[in-house]
Design a binder for these strands. Structure first.
Lengths: 348, 348
DNA sequence: CCAGTCCCTGTTAGCGCTAACATCCCGGCG
DNA sequence: CGCCGGGATGTTAGCGCTAACAGGGACTGG
């Protein structure tokens, strides 16, 4: 291996010496400046390669004010969605030549947010990406004023500030529409927590789609993302169904709740899709392997990350950019099917 | 708000001017140097507070060579474990006054690893934490030589290099022992992928515990972490059980496979814990809500992160430190119970 | 044939900070 | 009473890099 020598930190003038030019010429080559003779450029490039030189980011940051680093703040990275968002963001940032610094807030207070942004400022990150699906986080974000360019990653829809998101409303409509297309008279809905914008958007999509076909909108059941709350909803729905209510299709705001609901239905002797059709949201890795494999809505986190980085880079370049929310896709598996033949009020 | 003025970047001499001292004295206060008069120190501290000043990390890094940033490399952050490890690490790093930069490798090649470490080097991170549960990642790591202090986060056990991990062997023993204690004659095991050190360690723990009580060790079934492979294993086990084999307890290398197995058993008319006891590994958020709630082994990722950071900081300070692997804990829920009364070769 | 121009390259300054050295002032001791 | 030691503070240099300017050679046009 040539690169590893006595391992003293390599600097630009080492490269310059080897290529027989000044360090400034090396800098020009590295930064792609136009006025460098092709032969010189080549010599410098070879020296860089041979030495395995990498410019020092700190020195660069000091003079340019840019670190080519993006900061990512999130409150809650435990759920599948946020974790995937992080991965998508990192990948997109790296593809664009940026690094990603991560801060996970312990709590969604303005103080914690302020601290995180301060740290990013001190680190001279070029911009901050904030995950803002919960109202607390959004509020904390708004309370904090920062000179840093900021892009939020959140539920899609009408966005006052620079933001990217997956179109939650469209996803919910897709799910609802699928159920309606199968012949179900209406669709019941189990919501996510009320303080989540995504959860509210999914309610809206569901309601909109029902209204679009003139179907009645039954009252929602309220969950909190956990399988346990889905289980509860399942028990209640099963009881109501046994009492004669016409319940043939349920759309849940996420897959974990669908998992709980499926378990509860099963305990009550009801199976999907023969007795009830079930649709979730998220496409957890487990979703295809539930019994039955779950029909669900997938969000493209890789694309989300790509757009977030694109948006942030555009802002950095002073361009205004308006991105449409990322469209989700419906994955039809086996938990949904046509209306059971003997459904209570059989056809009118 | 005082801090926000015309928002020109605040520098050390601004603070110095306000406190009526030289910028060097400000530096001394910030870095906790001893020889500063108490009154002066206080004046400077007030000025810092009033201005909302934060020292510029890049400038600092340039002169000290330290950014108080740690780099984290992982190949695969999609699974629950790795994601939790990241969160634990970030929290611990932040608590110690460090920031965390993250790189997710697209593939576990030496080249990708080399690139990630190069980027971290250029960024002047103080040290690198690498997630190395897969052999590919470990190998890639070993092929790459880096001057950066490096700590691996991996399956516990005998560790040649500085590393922290959860004691997988102990976890598997806990699970197996629990089943044995319930009166099961032996325990069947569904493994994870062969190229995962964690999976192999879990096999070892299972085998060791069986040997410790002189129980026979049935041949393993091989899975790959996915619920689907657990489902397959469930089908096979159910068939063998129906054929008269004495199968009353199964320990699976993770919860997702347990989920699949439970589904398969259910389809075959077998239920946990009455027909078969089932134990998983990981304690997914879903685990308490499966039917039945899953007995499993939990890994303490927060503690893991804390130890990783502790170890890395010790190395940075030149201290050798040998940390024991983190002990996992067994969570007993409802998927395990005593041996079914009518089990095939009933007692001897 | 010389000024004007353009391209290539080198030299110099300085980003914001810390380390090393210089300075000042005070009290104590020979 | 002068000198010395040491704590508190200021001054200077330089970390590795890029921006701005300076210079020199080749080429053009008058």
């Amino acid at each position: 291996m040539e690169p590893e020598g006595p391992s003293r930190a390599l600097v630009m003038s080492d490269v310059a010496a080897r290529a027989g030019v000044s360090h400034q010429t090396v800098s020009r080559v590295i930064n792609g400046h136009p006025n460098v003779a092709p032969r010189t450029r080549e010599r410098v490039e070879r020296a860089i390669r041979e030495l395995g030189y990498r410019p020092n980011t700190a020195a660069r940051a000091l003079v340019t004010g840019s670190t080519r680093t993006l900061g990512f703040v999130a409150v809650n990275i435990n759920q599948y969605g946020p974790a995937q968002t992080l991965v998508g963001l990192e990948r997109a940032a790296r593809a664009a030549g940026y690094s990603l610094g991560v801060t996970v807030l312990d709590e969604a207070t303005a103080e914690a947010m302020r601290d995180a942004l301060d740290r990013f400022t001190a680190q001279s990150v070029d911009a901050v990406l904030a995950l803002a699906t919960y109202d607390d986080a959004v509020e904390a974000l708004h309370q904090v004023h920062t000179p840093l360019p900021l892009v939020t990653v959140q539920s899609g829809g009408a966005l006052e500030e620079p933001a990217v998101g997956v179109d939650q409303v469209a996803g919910a409509r897709l799910a609802t529409r699928h159920l309606l297309d199968l012949g179900h008279r209406t669709v019941h809905h189990v919501t996510g927590p009320a303080d989540s914008k995504e959860a509210r958007d999914r309610v809206e999509g569901w309601r909109t789609e029902l209204a679009a076909v003139g179907a009645p909108a039954p009252e929602c059941l309220h969950g909190d993302w956990t399988p346990s709350s889905g289980y509860e909803a399942g028990r209640r729905l099963a009881a109501r169904k046994r009492a004669g209510e016409d319940i043939t299709a349920v759309f849940l705001a996420n897959d974990q709740m669908a998992l709980g609901l499926l378990a509860a239905l099963h305990e009550e002797g009801l199976e999907a899709p023969c007795d009830v059709s079930v649709v979730g949201f998220d496409d957890l890795p487990e979703a295809p392997y539930l019994t039955p494999p779950l029909t669900t809505v997938r969000q493209d986190f890789a694309e989300l990350g790509r757009r977030a980085v694109e948006l942030v880079l555009a802002r950095l370049a002073g361009r205004e950019l308006h991105l449409q929310p990322v469209p989700p896709v419906l994955l039809i598996r086996s938990s949904t099917g046509p209306v059971p033949v003997g459904s209570t009020p059989a056809g009118v």
